[in-house]
Amino acid sequence: MNTRPLPLADDRSSERGDAARNRTRLLEAAALLVAERGVDAVTMDDVAARAGVGKGTVFRRFGSRAGLVRALLDHSEREFQQGFLFGPPPLGPDAEPLDRLVAFGRARIELVEVQGELLRAAESAAESHYFAPSHLVSLTHVDALLRAAGVGGDTRLLATSLVASLEATLVLHQWRELGYPLRQLADNWAELAHRVVTGTSASARDTRVVT
């Protein structure tokens, strides 16, 4: 399976060291404010004041509040991408495709617990987050896992449906408004993954192993 990462949005790999440090400083200030107040309450003025710079510096760096939110999401997504492409199993390589698929969904739901508001804001801020590089990375990864597991048919379309079930907007609604514990949502993802890949439930497979 090809595990070469796709470029994430706003890739700054060629950015000069001092510029990269300043950008990191602004992102760290923004992340602290999001953690304290929630993403909807954070303004560009707030970020500038926390980082000790003028508001114009923030606008020159990120363009708009939506650009800042996307940059914050990129920082989080890079770490997540490193985990499922190069990290230890079962999330990373050297595990069976089904086990990696289950681990991917569980890790994504766990991320929503910590950064759900940021993820939700990024989904709503983008004109179409379905074309965002970070989304395409996850979609390509799930598609590859399905094919490696021997799933037939249009795996890209199937992967699109699976990834959609992990979007922060939906997970937050299920958790906060419908009252489903995050652990139950993660277990439901595991059940869904088993049914898609094997045609049977996880509990049914465990029963066969025991008997």
Rank of each mutant, 00 (worst) to 15 (best):
L192D: 01
A149V: 12
V151A: 09
A193I: 11
F86C: 09
V142E: 00
P88D: 14
A121L: 12
H173Q: 14
I109N: 02
P90Q: 11
R147N: 03
D99N: 12
A164V: 09
S128H: 12
T160R: 14
A144T: 15
R195M: 12
F131Y: 10
L118A: 12
P97Q: 11
W189M: 02
V197T: 15
V163R: 00
A144Y: 03
I109S: 01
A193M: 10
W175N: 08
A193Q: 11
E113S: 08
L182I: 03
T155I: 06
L170C: 06
D99S: 15
A164K: 12
A148W: 04
V114D: 07
L85T: 13
L98V: 15
S124K: 13
V114E: 11
I109F: 06
P133E: 05
L139W: 15
A148H: 07
L139D: 02
P93M: 11
A148S: 15
P88Y: 04
L182A: 09
E123P: 01
A148I: 02
V163E: 00
Y130T: 05
R147I: 01
A149K: 10
V102T: 13
H194P: 03
V197N: 14
V151R: 15
A125R: 05
V196G: 07
E113L: 09
H141G: 00
G116R: 00
L158M: 15
R120F: 06
A144V: 11
R195H: 12
V196E: 08
H141D: 10
A190I: 07
A122V: 04
W189R: 01
P181R: 07
T140C: 03
P88R: 01
S138F: 00
L185D: 02
L118E: 06
G116P: 03
L91G: 03
L185C: 02
G150C: 13
R108E: 12
E117N: 09
S128C: 12
D94C: 05
L182G: 09
L172C: 03
A148P: 02
L101Y: 13
G116I: 04
G105N: 04
L98P: 01
V196N: 09
A103G: 05
V197Y: 15
L146K: 07
L136D: 01
H129S: 05
R156S: 08
P97C: 11
P133A: 05
R156V: 06
T169M: 05
G105F: 05
A159Q: 03
G105K: 00
F131P: 00
A125Y: 13
